[in-house]
């Protein structure tokens, strides 16, 4: 597995083989009822955790990243990590989704959240635009890099 510059003291890809991390990820999988989770890194390194149905055993395999499916007419807003997709903040369930179809979003706006255990990660619109097709199901499991929604360019 690829390792980054040690001298910066930054965390490296190698940390993904940390047993504590893997067991935590496996715990989330179990809790969410899914059976696989894949973390892929831009440089081609990656980690796949497969949880056998009904069992606690975890198998780890290095994987080759698949090419992301970007549609030519728009751009995809992608999940920053695998987890549960939330289309609104869990403390504001009575409100509407943050990114309803047809809604204009500024660059940097939060279009939803990925819930990983108690942690919420923002799903961020990298460019301004109009919310087009929404791919992720609210409160459904989503993988790293999966398209949450497609943004159409602003007119």
């Amino acid at each position: 597995m690829a390792r980054r510059d040690r001298s910066t003291g930054r965390n490296t890809i190698g940390d993904l083989s940390d047993p504590a991390l893997i067991s935590t990820l496996a715990g989330w999988l179990e809790g969410s009822g899914a059976n696989a989770l894949e973390i892929t890194t831009p440089d081609g390194g990656g980690l796949k955790i497969v949880l056998a149905a009904g069992a606690r055993a975890v198998r780890i395999a290095e994987t080759v990243p698949e090419a992301p499916a970007v549609r030519p007419e728009g751009h995809a807003v992608r999940a920053p990590m695998a987890g549960l997709f939330r289309d609104r903040h869990p403390a504001a369930m009575e409100t509407g989704p943050l990114a309803g179809a047809g809604r204009a979003l500024e660059a940097g706006a939060i279009a939803g959240f990925v819930e990983v255990g108690p942690v919420l990660l923002p799903v961020i619109a990298s460019k301004a635009g109009m919310v087009g097709e929404i791919h992720a199901r609210a409160e459904g499991l989503i993988g790293y890099g999966d398209a949450v929604l497609t943004m159409e360019p602003s007119r």
């Binding site: 980054r4 930054r10 490296t12 890809i13 940390d15 991390l21 990590m81 255990g117 108690p118 990660l121």
Partner: peptide, 12 residues
């Protein structure tokens, strides 16, 4: 979880 998520995201 916050520590692990930070580590994982830093790695990616």
């Amino acid at each position: 979880t916050a520590r692990l998520v930070r580590q994982a995201l830093a790695g990616m």
